[in-house]
Computed example of a mutant assay.
Amino acid sequence: MYHAARALLFAAALGTAAPAAYGAAAAPEHMQSGMRAALKRAIADSKGFENRFDAEVWLVDMSHRLAPLVPDLQRRLNLLRDVHSAATEAGLSPQLVLALIQVESNFKRFALSPAGAEGLMQIMPFWRHEIGEPDDNLFNRATNLRYGCAILAYYLTLEDGNLTRALARYNGSLGQLWYPLRVENALRENWRVR
């Protein structure tokens, strides 16, 4: 049943005919002009997915969820593709990374905290000297995601897989629960794959 639902979702999202066993599916109302072409480009450039079908289903599902925060379709698909790639490369759940981004910057690429943290995942500039290059642009989407995912993966290793402690370290609030709870709530309410 799960695969049938995924096939219908995928067929509807792309506006293609569903397999005969499932009947015809109409394109959903949220299908934006040009979505098919944009989605095909995003899928072609996607890394980290097991296969094309998984890429298509995940990108359509997450794009629909992210639309209220990132209205531009191409920007949204590019962001999702890069989140999935960076998270997968670091051994993280892409949905966890989406939840963290929501809490850190609410998907504002040029977010700057009062403490000086930059970009989507709110990376402190000192990390450039620790894991990157001094002139790395932390407002660059791919760079910011690569840094943030590497940092969170490091903290997960340091904390023997304890996500609560790793998230608290990421935020600089080790020993407190408010930040991990915010990320876990965002994950549960907005990004959990059902």
Rank of each mutant, 00 (worst) to 15 (best):
Y2R: 15
H3P: 00
A4E: 15
A5W: 13
G15P: 08
T16V: 10
A17E: 13
P19A: 12
A24H: 14
A25W: 06
A26H: 11
A27H: 10
E29Y: 08
H30V: 06
A38T: 07
L39T: 04
I43K: 06
I43T: 10
A44P: 00
D45H: 11
K47I: 11
K47L: 13
F49S: 02
N51L: 03
R52H: 05
F53L: 00
A55I: 01
E56H: 08
V57T: 13
V60L: 14
M62F: 03
H64C: 00
R65P: 02
L66R: 04
P68E: 09
P71K: 10
D72V: 01
D72G: 01
L73S: 01
L79I: 02
L80C: 10
R81I: 00
T88H: 02
T88S: 14
T88L: 00
T88M: 02
E89A: 15
L92A: 06
L92K: 03
L92C: 04
P94N: 08
P94H: 09
Q95C: 04
Q95R: 07
V97Y: 06
V97G: 02
L98S: 01
A99H: 04
I101L: 01
V103I: 09
S105A: 07
K108N: 07
A111N: 13
L112G: 02
P114N: 14
G119M: 12
M121A: 15
M124D: 04
P125R: 08
W127K: 09
R128E: 12
I131E: 09
I131K: 11
G132P: 05
P134N: 15
D135N: 14
N137Q: 09
N137V: 04
L138R: 08
F139A: 08
N140V: 03
R146H: 10
R146K: 14
R146S: 13
Y147T: 09
Y147W: 14
C149I: 07
A150D: 14
A150T: 15
Y155K: 08
L158M: 10
E159F: 05
R165C: 01
R169S: 02
L174F: 14
Y179R: 05
L181K: 11
V183P: 13
V183R: 11
E184S: 06
A186S: 13
L187A: 08
E189G: 00
V193W: 13
R194C: 02
